[in-house]
């Protein structure tokens, strides 16, 4: 075991897979010689050669479409979209092609591709470097969507994603790259050093897609969160003293529905937290699933604590970003309801 930050864990996953499988290759904007704007691929080109890890034209549509063709050939491309905000030129490829290749060809062709993209706010990125577009992908039949919240999970989930035979959107909460940010932007940033989930094996291991993790067991209310919001929720629980059960979904598709329903059936209350805009956000799906499956055990309305339904506003980042205070308020409302 070695202590790693999330970005180091992601780097390690890529390193392990390049070493392990000659069909794995990495490409994207600035990922080759330079090593990526967040350093996820630093040194990998030098270590494995230019055909294993290389730069691309500034063309997200071209990146994903060539990845699909390589996947159909039999390779396992791992591509980086520099910011999730810039994935939209590739959206047609992901929705119309990657997601449907296996289905429409009757199983003859498929696209075992992994599309990595740093996402989410809290980095002063304004409306072009802060987006949380997960619901655009969870809505699409045929795509898997993964969001880690810890270094250990980031590595294990990324390795599992690369070995998947289905296309995987791997959204990396970039505010967590270098530390477990809990929403308290008024306090000094903390590194991953000393955090239990920063203990990461150096070699190969997988965290299965489709399994949630209970980050804090509790009896009073269930909190469903993923990415940065897992840490914000834990902070809110600590500050409010409410005995909440905090579930880190890790995998939005496939979703660990059993862990969710077991928890809500136990607590009878549910708070859903995400950074993305609320309307038609992934929380809406979670809310529907919980009421469909736990209706007779619910003792209060389901509460959503989310980003507002606006583009991400640069100067009002901390008004937009769901704070521990807002999450705590949501917990209290769920307990009162």
């Amino acid at each position: 075991m070695t202590e790693m930050s999330m970005i180091q864990a992601i780097h390690s996953a890529l390193d392990v897979m390049l070493e392990r499988d000659p069909d794995v290759l990495i490409f994207g904007e600035d990922v080759g010689y330079f090593g990526g704007v967040f350093r996820a691929t630093e040194g990998l080109q030098a270590k494995y050669g230019a055909t294993r890890c290389f730069d691309t034209p500034l063309s997200e549509g071209g990146i994903v479409s060539t990845a699909i063709g390589m996947g159909a050939y039999g390779l396992r491309p791992v591509v980086e979209i520099q910011f999730a905000d810039y994935i939209l030129p590739a959206y047609d490829q992901l929705v119309s092609e990657a997601a449907r290749l296996r289905y429409r060809s009757g199983g003859e062709f498929w696209a075992p591709i992994t599309v990595r993209a740093p996402y989410g706010g809290g980095i002063h990125g304004g409306q072009t470097h802060s987006a949380s577009p997960e619901a655009l992908f969870t809505h699409v039949a045929g795509l898997k969507t993964i969001i880690p919240a810890t270094p250990y999970d980031a590595k294990g989930l990324l390795i599992a994603a690369i070995e998947e035979d289905d296309p995987v959107i791997f959204l990396e909460p970039k505010r967590l790259y270098n530390g477990p940010f809990d929403g308290r932007h008024d306090l000094p940033a903390r590194p991953w050093t000393g955090h239990a989930s920063a203990e990461v094996p150096e070699g190969y291991y997988k965290v299965a897609l489709g399994s949630a993790a209970i980050r804090r067991p509790g009896q009073a209310v269930t909190v469903l969160a993923y990415g940065t919001m897992v840490h914000v929720a834990l902070r809110a629980v600590e500050e409010s003293g409410i005995d909440a059960e905090v579930i880190d979904l890790r995998s939005l598709v496939p979703l660990d529905i059993d862990t969710i329903t077991a928890s809500v059936n136990k607590t009878g209350r549910c708070v859903i937290v995400h950074e993305a805009t609320r309307y038609s956000g992934f929380g809406a799906e979670l809310s529907a699933l919980v009421q469909e499956r736990c209706f007779y055990r619910l003792e209060a309305q389901i509460i959503r604590v989310t980003g507002w339904d606006t583009p991400y506003p640069h100067a009002f980042e901390w008004d937009y970003f769901p704070s521990p205070q807002r999450v705590a308020e949501g917990l209290r409302r769920a307990l009162e309801g």
């Binding site: 063709g69 390779l75 003859e108």
Partner: peptide
């Protein structure tokens, strides 16, 4: 290769497929 009714979106697949052959 598998067809679809949306035109053009396999052109890049062909390029990626060819790149894979070279790789």
């Amino acid at each position: 290769y598998t067809l679809a009714g949306n035109v053009g979106s396999r052109f890049g697949h062909a390029v990626g497929w060819a790149m894979a052959s070279a790789y």
